[in-house]
Design a protein around this nucleic acid. Structure first.
Length: 192
DNA sequence: GCGACGATGGGCT
DNA sequence: GCCCATCGTCGCA
């Protein structure tokens, strides 16, 4: 069942934690690709110096100020796209970065897009997920909660993977971000 | 206008 | 483990 806007319109830390074990789905011309979310990070507010919204409302960050359940997809390091889902209420900039996925459907398509690397390396990083699901800037600001969405998150009746729990750690890659933001335990990882 | 640098990944040692 | 490509965004002049 497709997650509704009320799921995303909550505290970003809750959403980031509860997205672990949910299923992310993308439907496109090449087929349906799905995977279980196993790693996320929370970014919330202009005060959070690890969050892009520290710069305030700009052309890049404006989608983070919009409706929960929209995608926030941005380009970095001159080559990579990263996929986030907007959270909280309109006007409060926050999002959850999807960092890790276990592919459960569409493996054939993903294998091709990931250059036939070993399956462990298909979607074990945020930019790899965008390669695998073919997500880029054209999908920025997409409503994952609308009827007929081709990108959405759903919960299982019966999960194919047994999750033992969720661990936390500091967010990855915030090397020059000041404390306390650098060390906030806002990364969530599934224990399989 | 312009320079610094990044929520990374792939290739090489 | 280390290096660095590659370019949009932001901050500052």
């Amino acid at each position: 069942m497709q997650l509704t806007r009320s799921f995303f319109a909550r505290d970003t830390l809750f959403v980031a934690r509860e997205l672990i074990g949910k299923r992310l789905v993308k439907i496109d011309a090449q087929g349906r690709i799905a995977g279980i979310i196993v790693e996320t990070e929370a970014y919330r507010g202009e005060d959070d110096l690890g969050c892009h919204a520290r710069a305030g409302l700009t052309n890049r960050t404006k989608v983070m100020y919009s409706l929960a359940g929209y995608s926030y997809i941005y380009f970095t390091y001159g080559k990579h796209w990263l996929f986030n889902i907007v959270t909280e209420s309109i006007g409060y900039p926050a999002a959850v970065l999807i960092r890790g996925l276990l592919i459960t459907e569409g493996g054939q398509i993903v294998a091709e897009r990931r250059n036939y690397l070993p399956q462990d390396h298909w979607t074990d990083g945020p930019a790899k997920i965008c390669q695998a699901l073919d997500l880029s800037g054209i999908h920025n600001g997409y409503d994952l909660c609308k009827n007929g969405a081709v990108i959405f998150v759903e919960h299982f009746e019966q999960s194919p993977v047994k999750l033992l729990g969720v661990t936390t750690s500091p967010r990855i890659g915030l090397n020059s971000v000041p404390e306390p933001w650098k060390s906030m335990p806002w990364r969530f990882v599934a224990q399989i």
